[in-house]
Amino acid sequence: MGAGHDAVAGELERRLAPHGVEVSVVDVLDLVPLRLGHALRRAYAGAIRSAPWLYAAIYRAFFVSRRPGPLRPPPPSPLTALIAARLQRRVRELPPDAVVSTFHVAAQAAGRLRRAGGLDAPSLVLVTDFAVHRMWLHPGNDRYLCPDKAAARAVTAATGRPATMCAPLVPPEFRRPGVRNGRDVRDLPEGRERLRKASGAGPDEPVVLISAGAWGVGRVVEAAGVLSASGRYRPVVLCGRNGHLRRRILGTGLAPALGWRDDVAELMAGAYALVDNAAGMTCREAFACGLPVISYRPIPGHGRDGALAMARGGLSVYAHSPAELVEALDRLEDGALRRTRAARVDALFSAESAERTVCAALG
């Protein structure tokens, strides 16, 4: 739905190219007839922006197991059957040696097709959520690649299929040697200078990035207000492609507001922390840069559950109130705390790479 799933697929394609692997990236929503897939995307975006309570209700009804206990795969759906039929046409036109899903609807369709005998190649699922919901799960898939060991255990228990942890698929510009092993990102003068110019911050003013994702959603105006009122941190809001949000924030005078940027890695390299609300690709990019992450007012459903999962794993902090947000930022002055959290994040990147697992499946 958002840009994160596309980014993961694109990065996997880039990494497989040196191995001589030809990749065809398919948007699963293009497989829905009459452009209804794009209507679903617009409806999802509208719910997240204007009626988050509606998406929360949909998430509880369809994405979360209704009975207590471990995760269970969802029942078959007409939409999945329709997409699987369209996917079968594609694999007949260009028979693959492996199929990799980076979106949960794709995982349902590929798993269904594999189990029904319409797909001869191995079907792998690259889970992009720290909190695995049941829409990712289908026992027809051959293997799951998960963001951490807890997610892998939950997937295997639910599907009976092998599931392992794999390193985040983050572009190389984010994973710099100078920010590994807990080095403080404030020690990177080039990134700090670039961010200072973009934000208008003073030379010693800590700059905190606030991410609204590619669509520019969530309660980021509130977050900017909290940081601005603290008098201790300079907020800068990354508004993605939401021009309306950018104009709104600039009109308040609370913080600089940036549109879609191609230099996010450089901005992160000079920031003090990231305030995030979706637990998605931006968090992984921050992890790669060594930038501490604080979740605040996450979007409902997978955003909230992902924020909770990251906090449980010691990868980030979940701030439930304005006071907790400022307190979490204040605690980052503790170098030992930063190093401890950075060590947990580094463990993510020491896991086996997704491209290596995919190449093994290709034989």
Rank of each mutant, 00 (worst) to 15 (best):
A57C: 01
I58K: 00
I58C: 07
Y59F: 13
F63D: 02
S65T: 15
R66S: 12
R66L: 13
R67Q: 15
R67K: 14
P68S: 12
P68A: 10
P70N: 10
P70W: 10
P70I: 09
L71H: 08
L71N: 08
R72T: 14
P73H: 05
P74D: 09
P75Q: 06
P75N: 05
S77D: 08
S77N: 06
L79R: 06
A81V: 07
A81M: 04
L82P: 00
I83G: 00
A84G: 01
Q88G: 15
Q88D: 14
R90N: 07
R90H: 12
R92K: 14
E93M: 08
E93I: 15
P95T: 12
P96S: 11
P96Q: 06
P96A: 06
D97W: 00
A98D: 01
S101Y: 01
T102I: 07
A106K: 09
A107P: 08
Q108S: 01
Q108V: 01
Q108D: 02
A109K: 02
A109H: 05
A110F: 06
L113S: 11
R114C: 05
A116H: 10
P122W: 09
S123F: 01
S123Q: 03
L124N: 07
V127H: 09
V127S: 03
T128F: 01
T128I: 10
D129I: 11
D129A: 07
A131M: 05
H133N: 15
R134W: 03
W136C: 09
W136L: 02
H138C: 00
G140A: 07
G140E: 09
N141G: 11
D142T: 07
R143Y: 09
R143P: 03
C146K: 09
C146N: 07
P147C: 08
D148H: 14
A150C: 08
A151P: 04
A151R: 05
V155D: 00
V155P: 02
V155E: 00
T156H: 13
T156R: 15
A157T: 13
A157N: 02
A158L: 08
G160L: 09
R161Y: 08
P162T: 02
P162K: 10
A163W: 06
A163M: 13
T164K: 10
C166A: 14
P168W: 02
P168M: 12
P168L: 04
P168S: 01
L169K: 07
L169P: 00
L169D: 07
L169M: 13
V170K: 06
V170W: 01
V170Y: 06
V170H: 05
P171C: 06
P171V: 10
P171M: 12
P172S: 12
P172A: 14
R175S: 13
R175P: 04
R176I: 10
P177A: 11
G178S: 15
V179P: 02
V179A: 08
G182H: 05
D184Q: 05
D184T: 00
R186L: 15
D187T: 15
L188C: 06
